Amino acid sequence: MPTKQSQRTPTQPRDLNAPFFDLREVAWILGVSVDTVRRRIRAGLLPCSQAVEGGTITVSRADLDAYHEATRLVRLPARNVRRRPARAAA
């Protein structure tokens, strides 16, 4: 008898090039929980769509790519700060 996964369990998408993903697939792609994806949608950070009230929430590939670009961490360029030599111990 197959077991049913929780709706909060991230799942790997069948096709990573699909035009739309559900919340569980988005959570797997971003490496976060489904609840975190819901919070980011509620905060307006991640656009989504819903065909009918109470239906499946989907995120488009374009919106997911834009979110990733906006939130990726980039190393800041090094500042040209002149460092003083360390003092000799007395």
Rank of each mutant, 00 (worst) to 15 (best):
A66Q: 11
C48P: 04
P19T: 00
P47C: 06
A89C: 07
T9L: 08
T58S: 08
I41E: 06
T56Y: 00
A27H: 02
A89R: 14
L45E: 09
T11S: 07
E69R: 11
L46D: 01
V37M: 06
E69M: 02
T3C: 13
L46A: 09
P2F: 14
R72G: 02
D65Q: 12
A27V: 06
R42E: 09
L45K: 15
R72Q: 13
D35L: 05
R14L: 13
R42L: 10
V26L: 04
F20N: 05
C48L: 05
D35Y: 02
A70T: 10
A62S: 07
V81H: 07
R39W: 00
L23I: 02
A88W: 07
R75P: 01
L30M: 01
T11R: 08
R39H: 04
A66C: 09
I57S: 03
L46G: 00
R38K: 07
R87S: 03
N80E: 13
W28I: 01
R84D: 12
M1R: 11
D63M: 13
T58F: 03
S33I: 09
A18I: 01
L30W: 04
D35T: 08
A43E: 08
N17P: 04
E25Y: 00
Q5H: 05
P85K: 00
N80R: 14
G55S: 11
S49F: 04
R39I: 05
R42H: 12
E25V: 02
W28V: 00
R8Y: 15
L73A: 09
L64H: 02
P47L: 10
K4N: 12
Q5R: 15
A62V: 10
R82N: 14
Q5D: 11
Q5L: 12
D63F: 08
R87V: 12
A51G: 09
R84Q: 01
P47N: 07
L16T: 06
V74N: 14
M1Y: 14
P13C: 01
Q5W: 10
A27R: 00
N80T: 10
V81M: 12
P10F: 02
L76K: 05
F21R: 11
W28L: 05
L46N: 04
R61S: 07
L23V: 03
L64K: 12
V32G: 05
W28S: 08
R24N: 03
T58K: 12
A51I: 04
P2R: 14
R84P: 12
R39V: 06
A89L: 15
R83I: 10
D35K: 05
A90R: 14
V59D: 00
H68C: 08
R24Y: 09
V81R: 08
R87H: 14
G54S: 08
R39D: 03
L76H: 11
G55I: 01
Y67V: 01
P85E: 07
A88L: 14
A89K: 14
T71Q: 11
A88P: 14
M1F: 15
A89G: 13
V37Y: 03
D63R: 03
G44P: 04
V52H: 03
A62G: 11
P2A: 15
R79H: 15
F20Q: 09
A86M: 10
